[in-house]
């Protein structure tokens, strides 16, 4: 028990940015769902089970047209295909997580990923419980935020046009944060350039998968140079 409290205390400060972001995004999501006639119960159920911000925003479109579960499944896979890359990035860190591993993988959303990929547990705190509490806290913020939004949405009404821009804002903020923390900007530039090119070629509804393939291809070409650069840096050190 004391071990767990220690891990929770170590995890909490890292989740504060997500707390703020998720409260905002979650509230916006709850209000949007409410404006489409889906009450707080549905909103909470969706946030609890799917725990995927952008997919849930996209899912609003599945909930407001003709019932088409196969389309909903396929589009969700497309929207969340980037999670395949997160999994690859976390293979090593989550390797020995034991009992909590399925929950860690379940909760590997954009924001949780952005924390766990860049933080290590402090000394004396077990890695698995540290990551477990980061994931659990983020999950709770998301469910809580969307619940508040769902409740607020039924009480207040205001012009929500443009509110879904919070999502764009969040990713821009993560992008800028990563840019500041890294000296090598090539992976970030590769991501943007490949995506923009594929968007121009394939159009907005079909570009995600080609963009992922293009990113993989360019990163593979860049692999050799990356290994060489790393060796040079290590030799200098």
């Amino acid at each position: 028990m004391r071990e767990n409290i220690k891990a929770l205390k170590a995890a909490f400060p890292h989740t504060i940015p997500v707390f703020t972001g998720f409260t905002f995004l979650g509230i916006a999501y709850g209000i949007l769902m409410n404006s489409k006639g889906y009450g707080v119960g549905w909103t909470v159920l969706m946030s609890l089970m799917a725990f995927a911000g952008s997919a849930q925003y996209v899912a609003i479109t599945f909930l407001t047209t003709v019932f088409n579960p196969v389309y909903a499944l396929l589009l969700t896979i497309m929207v969340n295909a980037r999670h395949l890359f997160y999994g690859i990035a976390m293979l090593d860190k989550y390797k020995d997580a034991g009992k909590v591993k399925p929950y860690l993988i379940f909760g590997l959303c954009d924001e949780t990923f952005s924390i766990v990929c860049s933080t290590e547990p402090p000394e004396g705190v077990s890695r698995s419980s540290f990551y477990f509490f980061i994931t659990l806290l983020d999950h709770s913020y998301w469910v809580l935020g969307s619940a508040i939004g769902g409740l607020l949405g039924s009480m207040v009404s205001f012009n929500t046009k443009g509110l879904s821009f919070v999502l764009t804002a969040l990713f821009v903020v993560i992008f800028v944060g990563q840019w500041k923390s890294q000296q090598d900007h090539k992976p970030a530039v590769i991501g943007v350039v490949c995506s923009v090119l594929c968007l121009a070629i394939f159009g907005s509804s079909n570009f995600i998968i080609p963009a992922m393939l293009a990113i993989l291809a360019v990163l593979t070409i860049y692999h050799k140079g990356y290994v060489k650069d790393k060796k040079l840096i290590e030799e200098k050190a």
């Binding site: 890359f85 990035a89 293979l91 090593d92 952005s114 970030a188 490949c194 968007l199 990163l219 990356y226």
Partner: peptide
């Protein structure tokens, strides 16, 4: 860590956020 998959694990986070930003503006 030095395998190809390990390398992808290190660089993908940065590329993917770029993709996400473009995705939002599609």
């Amino acid at each position: 860590k030095n395998s190809y998959i390990g390398y992808l694990g290190q660089v993908l986070p940065y590329s993917v956020i770029g993709l996400l930003v473009v995705y939002c503006l599609k």
